[in-house]
Structure formats: C-alpha cells, structure tokens
C-alpha cells in the first residue's frame, strides 16, 4: 500500500527532457493537449505519433512505463469510442449507414470519429504522463506557483495555493501510514472490512475515517505551531531557495514544439481551401 507518493510516477533519469525547466514542460504539455484537438486527419495523427515517440525516445523513459498510464482509462476509452460510433451521423446527408437496426445506425464517418476520439484521449494521457514521468511533483508545484504568479494582480493567493500543494505532497506518506495503522488497529479489535453488502462495507469505513480525521486536525495544529516557530508569516517578503532558470534545452524544445503545433493550427485554419489534398483533412 505504501508506494512512494513523493515521487509519484516519476521515472528517475538525466535525459534532455528530465533536465528541462518544469515550467516549460508544463506549458508545452498544455500546448500539446490543446493542439491534438486541432488534429483533423489520420495522416496528421501520424505526424503527432512520430513527434510523441521522438519525445519519449529522448526522455529515455521505457515505452512500457508510458503506456501503463493508458491502462487506467481503458474503460473510459472504450465507452467513449463506442458511444461515438452510435451517435455520429454521416459526414454528409447523402452518406448511407454501413449497418442499421431499429434506430441504431452506424456510419463510416462514426467509425472514423470514434477512432479519432480514441487516439486523442490516448495521446492526451500519454502526453501528460511524459510530463509526470520526467518531473518530480515538487518541481511541478514550483512550476505551478511560478506560472500562476501573474494572478497575484487579481489577489489570487498564489503562495498559499502552492504551499497547500506542497504540504499535501509531504503529508500524503504519513497519512497513508496512519490509515494503514488505523485499519490494522480496527481489524485487531474485530472490525470486518471484507464481507457484507455495499452499505455494510461503506459503514465499516466510518471507524477508519473518524480517527483519521481527528488525527488530521491534531497534525494540522502541530504543523501550524512548527511553522509559526520557524517564523512563517505568509507570503510577504518571503524568498525562495530554488531558482528556476531557462537553459538552451528549454529554448530548443519550446521552438520545436511550438513550430510543430503552429503547423497543425495552420492546417486546421486552412481546412477546405486545399481542395486536392484531402488526405490531410480526413
């Protein structure tokens, strides 16, 4: 049960991607995620695949670890794809269904749409897991804090937000340990978590949740005392030990990625205007 949450699914390494600035990685991942929704044809999906494989290759994370993240959403993937097959209509009113029964009609267009949605979701997950596999949660927290800084103008409590994230990360291991301990303690006193119906099982978790909650408050108070003792006074005049500096890797990666997706956006914007080359659009 006690997996090392601090490092999440981080895959230790020293590759080009690992050494990039977390902020750039985060921004480029967001760009990637938005970008794949502008991909229209299987041909362009091919380009994206090559791009993604190249990134994974450079990051030196085994393909197996990357694909593992897809396993978690298989049900969602299949469900979405199947629904798309049934609900999509033909691309043109003239298109005849491939197969129909009662009110259910399946069009070739529906199959295409389903396949594209499927690919998009898979690439979305793979793209984000490349980020989390090559970046520690701590770095991500710093990146988020740094990227949200402009929001201070509208009084968004950026520092507090980042502190909450960082405290959450550092308390997950001890809370898991405590949950484990409470479960064992309740089992030792005859609690039964494994039999009975849904409601009975749900009820069985009350004796775990209550001590956990009470313990959580106690911890919070102790932590607050410890933080006060260490001169914590909120964000004012606070400095930060970690410096984030952009290096040549960040510029190269940003240039390549932005250029790639700029191409995709251009293709999307010009759809329909290049009558002949339909393979780029469907």
């Amino acid at each position: 049960m006690l997996r090392d949450v601090t490092f999440g699914q981080y895959y230790p390494g020293n590759s080009f991607v690992h050494r990039m600035d977390a902020r750039i990685k985060l921004v480029l991942t967001l760009l990637f995620m938005v970008g794949i929704f502008f991909v229209q044809s299987f041909a362009v999906f091919g380009f994206v695949t090559v791009f993604l494989l190249a990134v994974i290759f450079i990051s030196q994370v085994p393909l197996r670890s990357v694909l593992r993240s897809v396993k978690g959403i298989v049900v969602l993937l299949v469900l979405t794809a199947v629904l798309n097959v049934f609900f999509a209509k033909g691309a043109t009113p003239a298109e005849q269904p491939l197969w129909s029964w009662w009110k259910i009609e399946i069009y070739a267009n529906g199959l295409k749409q389903a396949a594209k949605i499927f690919l998009r979701l898979v690439y979305l997950v793979i793209g984000s897991s490349v980020l989390t596999l090559t970046t520690t949660p701590v770095d991500l927290t710093h990146a988020v804090e740094s990227l949200l800084k402009p929001l201070r103008v509208i009084k968004f409590p950026v520092h507090e937000f980042a502190l909450i994230m960082s405290l959450t990360l550092s308390f997950i291991p001890s809370l898991i340990e405590e949950t484990d301990r409470i479960i064992r303690a309740q089992k030792a006193r005859g609690a039964d978590f494994d039999t009975g119906g849904l409601i009975k099982r749900a009820k069985a978790f009350v004796p775990i949740l209550i001590p956990l909650l009470v313990g959580g408050f106690r911890r919070a108070e102790e932590l607050a005392n410890a933080m006060n003792s260490r001169c914590y006074e909120g964000a004012t005049k606070r400095t930060c030990m970690r410096v984030m500096k952009l290096g040549w890797r960040d510029y190269v990666a940003a240039f390549v990625t932005v250029a790639f997706f700029a191409g995709i956006f251009v293709l999307y914007a010009m759809r329909g205007s290049w009558g002949g080359v339909t393979w780029l659009y469907f």
Partner: peptide
C-alpha cells in the same frame, strides 16, 4: 517538537530546512 512527521513542510529535506530562512526573506 515531538512528532518529526508533523513538522516537515516540504517533501525534500533541503527544502524543508530552507523553510525558515525563506520566511526570513534571506537572499537565495
């Protein structure tokens, strides 16, 4: 304090130790 787990603010040792001086506004 007594419980070491309840006084750690960061999940990396050096960042936890840095918490105090960061609060003081010490230069990086």
């Amino acid at each position: 304090f007594q419980n070491p787990d309840n006084q750690m603010v960061a999940s990396i040792v050096e960042e936890d130790v840095a918490f105090g001086p960061e609060n003081l506004g010490v230069p990086q």
